[in-house]
Each structure stands twice: as structure tokens, then as C-alpha cells.
Amino acid sequence: MNAKTARSAQKLVVHAVLIIGAMFMVGPFIWMLLTSVKTFGESTLVPPVIFPAKFQWHNYKDVTAVLPFVHFYWNTVISSVAKTLGQLLLCSLAAYSFARIEFPGRNVIFIIVLSVLMVPSQIHILPQYMIMKSLGWLNSLQALIVPGLFSAFGTFLLRQFFMTLPKELEEAAKLDGCNHFQIYYRIMLPMVVPGLIALSIITMLWAWNDLLWPLVVNNSPEKMPLSVGLASLQGQNLTNYPVIMAGAVLAIWPMLLLFLLLQRYFVEGITLTGTKG
């Protein structure tokens, strides 16, 4: 009986700690939502009011009047999806080749690819910016997409998956007269789907949230992604926090929704790769 009480007391403490933790983690989101539907006056009241007298949904309309959010969405969605699909294709091709085909210089080339992982991305930014500039790609969707299509990280990740597949599979396919592309496409690719999912989630997340690179290349409002749009919103509207918060909500809800729908895959993706950036 005593042990039982002790155990339920312990559980109570655990829940208390977890709830405090959850409040710390979720509080900012709730406050963002609540602020986004207040009037400017309500947002500056001391002591603060938790709920607005009337939900000011027009803040969301106001923020889209200040800045072209439709363009932001378009740019972010197109560039994130294109980058993700591109990486899936190119990385899986290269990964298959590195993992399953023997050709002269394979190991040396693979080590060179791996060495890219050691270099912080800031090193690339200046030269990449100049490439974009000389191609006339500043303020374009290509600038957001093209440099991100080639990923040493994605190649490495998928190679790990291809390495685990048994050799008999391709032996059998070769006897049937399949070439490597057919083996890759018909037999191996369906077997590395977990890797493809992990890579898509991670790439999507990075692309959606990235700030530094789009800030450098796309500064006209029609070509900005959401992240840069938020930065410019802050520049324009320093004090009207309800409107700013409405903008922040608009920028984050699609990723949050995607996460809630595909939770397991997000967690697996992060566990496999370590990080969001």
C-alpha cells in the first residue's frame, strides 16, 4: 500500500514537471495566436488581457494587405517542393550508383562528396550569389531552387539505405537483362522508401524555414519566400504586434499542420539525420 502511494506520488510529480515543461514549450504559440486576434490597444494593456473582447480576424486580412502573402506562399511552396523533389531524384540516383555500382574512382569521388558535409554553408554563399547574379537569377524562383538541388547530405543518407539491400536482388535482375537504371527504378527505389521519406521531410523543413540564402538573393516582395517576408514585415510595422503575429501565424501553420499529420515521419527523419539545420 505504501509503495503504491509512493508510486502515484512520483507519477504526480512527473506530470507536474511535464505540464510545466509543456507550458513553456507551447505558451509562445498560444500567445502568438491570442495576440493575432486582438486590437492594437488590447495588445498593449497592462495587465494583459488573455482573450480579446472581440476576435479581430481582420488582422489577418490587414497583414496580407501590407505585404503580398499570396506571393510569399507561392514562392515558399514552389521552391520547397521543387527542391525536395529534385533532391529525391538526384540524390537517390547518385546514392544508388555509389552504393551498388563499381566504377573506377568511385571511392575518391565519394570522399570528395562527403567532404562537402564538413563545410559550413556560409562559405558557399558569396560565390553562389555571384553565380546567381551573373545568370541574372537574382529575384527569381530558380535562385531559391537550383543551388539547393544538389545535396551531399542526401546522397550520403540514401546511400546508407541502398547499402543494406541484398546483392541477390540485382544479380537476379541483371540475369533478366535489366540495366542499372531499371534496377534502380523498378527494384531498389521502392525498397528505400523510408529513406526517401526521411530526406523529403528534412529537405522540406529546411527549405521552408531557410532565411539567410533567400534573404541574400531575393529581396523584391514578389519573389520573397515567407521567411524573408516576415523579416520585411518586421521592418515595416515595428509596433503593431497583433498584425505581426498574424503574419507569423500565416507563415508557420502549413508546416505545423504537415507535422501533425505526418508526425511519425518527422520524428523518424530527425532521429535519422540529427537535426533541422
Binding site: 511535464l18 515543461g21 509543456a22 514549450m25 507551447v26 509562445p28 504559440f29 500567445w31 502568438m32 495576440t35 495588445s43 498593449t44 494593456l45 497592462v46 494583459p48 523543413l205 521552408w208 524555414n209 532565411l211 515567407l226 521567411s227 516576415l230 523579416a231 518586421q234 504586434y241 505581426i244 503575429m245 503574419g247 507569423a248 507563415a251 508557420i252 508546416m255 505545423l256 504537415l258 507535422f259 501533425l260 508526425q263 518527422f266 520524428v267 530527425i270 533541422k276
Partner: peptide, 28 residues
């Protein structure tokens, strides 16, 4: 709990920064 603790991971850092800037506001 796990879901709630994970939410910041999928949130755009620039939005995170704006929310905290508001939370940190010295006056309000």
C-alpha cells in the same frame, strides 16, 4: 507531451524570433 515538445522544431525560426521578441517586450 512529445508532440507539444516537438512543435518548436517545425516552426520557422524567423517566426519564432518574432514571437519571442513580443514576449520579451519590456513594456507590454
Amino acid at each position: 507531451y512529445r508532440t507539444l515538445y516537438f512543435l518548436p522544431v517545425v516552426t520557422m525560426p524567423s517566426a519564432v524570433a518574432m514571437v519571442w521578441k513580443w514576449l520579451y517586450n519590456a513594456d507590454y
